[in-house]
């Protein structure tokens, strides 16, 4: 899932500026699961903004709405009226949700209430960790199911750097060394041969380095009217 964190309230307040009518839009998918921008968080942010603006003496009318999936235009139609009545929309969706809102409602001023952090998973209650960097060319089949692009601090493809120590990364003892994990996993599976060959330089075109990405699936596209 996409993991995000809420921005500090001070920053959110500064982003909302002079707007009198603010609509807080939560999202019912990833950011609900990671407790950053679901209905519950939207209610808290709404109450906080209301209270803070009241104390300021510039009271804002703050309302809230949570859609099931902020990253798809069609889910945003149900809040059209509320968006129209707002001076400013504070999205508690991920970066995709913020942009979907801005695209669906081109006249609305949309600002983010979250910092979208990574694609990852919950390790335990309250702890999430990154797992995928969306490089566009998955090599997990060669690396024992541990991604060196997302999980090695230097994105190495041919083994650990000299800073790997007791299973930890040189950057921070909180970070597990991805290459230690890859080595251990492949060794336990008797598949070390997979990392003995030299992995050639990666073709980063499939990653962000090739420019913003897009997938077109002709088999799924709807026929264009008038076209045979």
């Amino acid at each position: 899932m996409i993991v995000a964190e809420q921005k500090p309230l001070e920053e959110i307040r500064s982003l909302t500026g002079d707007a009198k009518r603010v609509l807080v839009v939560g999202c019912g998918t990833c950011v609900t699961v990671c407790f950053a921008g679901g209905a519950r968080e939207a209610a808290i942010v709404t109450a906080s903004l209301r209270m803070a603006s009241k104390i300021d003496g510039h009271e804002k009318a703050v309302t809230e709405a949570t859609v099931q999936r902020q990253c798809e235009w069609e889910y945003l139609d149900e809040i059209a009226e509320q968006v129209r009545h707002a001076d400013l929309v504070l999205s508690l969706g991920c970066g995709v949700g913020v942009q979907a809102l801005a695209e669906r409602y081109p006249d609305a001023v949309v600002v983010p209430g979250l910092n979208t952090t990574f694609m990852g998973l919950p390790l335990e209650q309250g702890v999430w960790a990154e797992r995928c960097a969306a490089c566009g060319q998955c090599i997990l089949g060669l690396t024992g199911g541990v991604c060196p692009i997302a999980r090695c601090s230097k994105q190495l493809l041919n083994g650990p750097c000299g800073g790997s120590s007791k299973g930890k990364c040189e950057v921070n003892p909180e970070i597990d060394c991805a290459w230690q994990m890859i080595y251990d996993k492949l060794k336990s599976q008797n598949r070390l041969h997979l990392i003995m060959e030299i992995t050639p330089p990666k073709d980063w075109r499939t990653s962000r380095d090739g420019g913003p990405r897009k997938i077109v699936r002709e088999d799924l596209r709807l026929p264009v009217a008038g076209k045979v």
């Binding site: 040189e170 992995t199 050639p200 330089p201």
Partner: peptide, 28 residues
Amino acid sequence: LTGDHQTFGNHPQAKNVHDMDSVQLVQM
């Protein structure tokens, strides 16, 4: 060389590159 991670240095805010690793650099 791979290079020490930039968080150790005097520009920890920098974006690192790591387009290639040291083995690939040797090969190049």
